[in-house]
Computed example of a mutant assay.
Amino acid sequence: MPPAPDRLKADYDRARNAVALLERTDRGLIEAAGPDRAAWLNNLVTNVVKTLGPGDGNYAFAVNVKGRVIFDMNILVLDDLALPEGRLWLDIDAGWITDAMKHLDRHIITENVTLTDRIRDFHRWALLGPRAAAVVERLGFGNLVPMAQLQHVEHPFDGGTVRAVRHDFAGVPGVELLVSAAASDALRQRLIECGSNDNIAPIDPAAVHILRVEAGIPASRIDIDAEVIPPETSQIERGINYKKGCYLGQEVIERMRSRGMLPRQLVGVRLSGRAVPALPLSLSRDGNDLGRVTTVVWSFALDAPLALAYVKSAHAAPGTKLTATSAEGTALDGQIVAFPLRASSS
């Protein structure tokens, strides 16, 4: 038996094979409004903004002049970018909202842009698993299956609206539902009713944590912090557009690409033992330092501890063997694994 509670494994299996319900209190929301919002934001993030249409979204980083991460975000376009009164939503880790507001406000110079912290205005529920789309359809919100990641639609609900966002944030099919705080309990009840045939139940966030690590998805403030540059996070395809032109910190990131320089990168490391080791853990090979571990979980897919770690690129190939050492000097055998560990259940 793995060193994890039976309920954690049951929650994990529910999200892998059916549908689970998660209350997302870890995310915040900043609204950017005004006629200059798209061009202004496009100059501050690593991904393209100006070509997005209403209902589109993408993932991006905000970086400093040295190219290091300040925060990462999901960008949701609510209205046509040509509309002067239109809005953008920036979906950001709740722990980064204050710093994000300061950074963004600092870079409003002459642009006509207004920022509003909407973290208290909306409540967020998420469905995870292959039956999530069926529950949403029973709710009357349409078919989410053809939607691309971070595409979103608004539907009437309980005298207001719900915005449904296609988002596989844990590596399994997923949808996030943003609703007014006043209508949150009513939406939760309807989700439970619509998912009853699929045995929907709340999921422990620890099980979600395992799923996203097995999918190789880094988390804000845990695996993505001020020490890293976006290409090192292994999120280039979804988070960086090298053709969009200039933005704050772009020179550093473009130089890394043009010169083929990637000093380190985020990888998965399978560890020995039957217990999840405590952080910090350092990584080495033949006595040489290789990098640092940011997260460790018990992987049900591997039946072993699994870490996310930043490793020197010269030693980042799957199959590479290394040693993980705790602060107390305990050494564990490790081997780099390829992501994702499991096939998608969409």
Score class of each variant (00 low, 15 high):
residue 143 N to K: 06
residue 160 G to T: 15
residue 123 H to D: 12
residue 121 D to A: 07
residue 150 L to E: 01
residue 173 P to E: 10
residue 163 R to E: 09
residue 175 V to S: 03
residue 167 H to S: 14
residue 172 V to F: 07
residue 173 P to M: 11
residue 173 P to N: 10
residue 196 S to V: 13
residue 133 A to W: 14
residue 186 A to K: 11
residue 192 I to P: 00
residue 197 N to A: 15
residue 137 E to H: 14
residue 187 L to F: 05
residue 122 F to G: 01
residue 131 R to N: 15
residue 189 Q to L: 12
residue 197 N to G: 15
residue 188 R to N: 09
residue 122 F to P: 00
residue 185 D to M: 03
residue 123 H to L: 10
residue 157 F to G: 03
residue 181 A to P: 00
residue 177 L to N: 01
residue 147 M to L: 15
residue 122 F to M: 08
residue 139 L to D: 01
residue 167 H to K: 03
residue 187 L to P: 00
residue 188 R to I: 02
residue 128 L to N: 05
residue 180 S to L: 09
residue 181 A to L: 07
residue 168 D to E: 13
residue 137 E to V: 07
residue 126 A to S: 15
residue 132 A to D: 04
residue 196 S to L: 14
residue 151 Q to W: 09
residue 188 R to T: 03
residue 167 H to A: 13
residue 172 V to L: 05
residue 154 E to M: 09
residue 139 L to R: 01
residue 195 G to C: 11
residue 149 Q to R: 12
residue 132 A to I: 08
residue 188 R to W: 03
residue 155 H to Q: 07
residue 182 A to T: 14
residue 180 S to D: 15
residue 130 P to Y: 08
residue 161 T to D: 09
residue 174 G to Q: 04
residue 188 R to V: 02
residue 174 G to C: 12
residue 194 C to L: 04
residue 178 L to S: 09
residue 173 P to Q: 12
residue 196 S to Y: 06
residue 171 G to S: 11
residue 175 V to T: 12
residue 122 F to Y: 07
residue 156 P to T: 13
residue 140 G to W: 05
residue 151 Q to V: 07
residue 177 L to Q: 01
residue 162 V to S: 02
residue 130 P to T: 06
residue 178 L to M: 10
residue 132 A to E: 04
residue 139 L to Y: 01
residue 146 P to K: 12
residue 171 G to Y: 07
residue 154 E to F: 02
residue 191 L to A: 04
residue 186 A to C: 09
residue 173 P to I: 14
residue 189 Q to I: 08
residue 127 L to G: 02
residue 131 R to D: 14
residue 134 A to R: 06
residue 171 G to D: 08
residue 157 F to M: 02
residue 146 P to H: 12
residue 190 R to E: 14
residue 127 L to H: 05
residue 146 P to T: 10
residue 198 D to M: 12
residue 143 N to E: 03
residue 196 S to E: 13
residue 150 L to A: 07
residue 178 L to G: 00
residue 144 L to D: 01
residue 187 L to G: 02
residue 140 G to N: 07
residue 183 A to E: 07
residue 183 A to L: 05
residue 145 V to C: 02
residue 198 D to G: 10
residue 166 R to V: 11
residue 169 F to V: 07
residue 165 V to Y: 08
residue 154 E to C: 05
residue 160 G to D: 15
residue 183 A to H: 07
residue 163 R to S: 05
residue 159 G to Q: 13
residue 160 G to Y: 04
residue 163 R to T: 15
residue 139 L to W: 00
residue 186 A to L: 09
residue 155 H to Y: 14
residue 144 L to C: 05
residue 125 W to C: 04
residue 148 A to I: 08
residue 147 M to F: 11
residue 154 E to V: 15
residue 179 V to K: 03
residue 189 Q to S: 15
residue 134 A to G: 03
residue 176 E to H: 03
residue 141 F to A: 03
residue 164 A to I: 15
residue 174 G to W: 14
